[in-house]
Simulated assay, not measured.
Amino acid sequence: MSLTVPEELVRKAQDGAMTDDEFLACVQNSLPYAWSVVERLVKEFKDGATVAEDGTVPPNDKAWGELLRFAASDSMRGAVERKYGVRLAFQNCCKTGMFAPGATAEYDEFVSPRAQILNQKPELINC
Score class of each variant (00 low, 15 high):
residue 106 E to G: 13
residue 4 T to A: 08
residue 54 D to T: 00
residue 58 P to N: 05
residue 85 G to M: 02
residue 97 G to V: 06
residue 9 L to H: 08
residue 90 F to L: 06
residue 101 P to A: 09
residue 122 P to H: 14
residue 13 A to F: 13
residue 80 V to P: 04
residue 81 E to G: 09
residue 21 D to L: 05
residue 46 K to E: 09
residue 91 Q to E: 15
residue 112 S to H: 13
residue 40 R to D: 03
residue 67 L to C: 09
residue 65 G to K: 12
residue 7 E to W: 04
residue 34 A to D: 01
residue 32 P to S: 14
residue 85 G to N: 00
residue 99 F to E: 04
residue 94 C to L: 04
residue 111 V to F: 14
residue 45 F to P: 03
residue 34 A to C: 05
residue 78 G to W: 08
residue 22 E to K: 14
residue 19 T to W: 15
residue 86 V to I: 15
residue 65 G to Y: 02
residue 115 A to D: 07
residue 81 E to I: 02
residue 72 A to N: 05
residue 115 A to G: 11
residue 114 R to I: 15
residue 122 P to T: 06
residue 69 R to G: 05
residue 113 P to D: 03
residue 44 E to T: 06
residue 118 L to I: 09
residue 78 G to V: 05
residue 18 M to H: 00
residue 99 F to V: 09
residue 21 D to C: 01
residue 31 L to D: 00
residue 17 A to R: 07
residue 72 A to L: 08
residue 92 N to W: 03
residue 75 S to K: 14
residue 48 G to P: 00
residue 24 L to Y: 08
residue 122 P to S: 13
residue 73 S to Q: 14
residue 38 V to N: 07
residue 28 Q to M: 03
residue 51 V to W: 03
residue 42 V to T: 13
residue 119 N to L: 09
residue 5 V to W: 15
residue 112 S to R: 14
residue 121 K to F: 02
residue 123 E to A: 01
residue 36 S to C: 12
residue 88 L to P: 03
residue 112 S to G: 10
residue 88 L to C: 06
residue 5 V to M: 13
residue 86 V to A: 12
residue 102 G to E: 05
residue 42 V to Y: 15
residue 2 S to V: 10
residue 112 S to Q: 12
residue 13 A to W: 03
residue 3 L to V: 10
residue 115 A to L: 05
residue 102 G to K: 03
residue 109 E to V: 03
residue 50 T to Q: 11
residue 30 S to V: 10
residue 124 L to T: 14
residue 120 Q to S: 02
residue 15 D to H: 11
residue 49 A to P: 01
residue 36 S to W: 14
residue 91 Q to D: 15
residue 113 P to F: 08
residue 79 A to M: 04
residue 45 F to S: 00
residue 8 E to I: 10
residue 22 E to H: 14
residue 38 V to H: 12
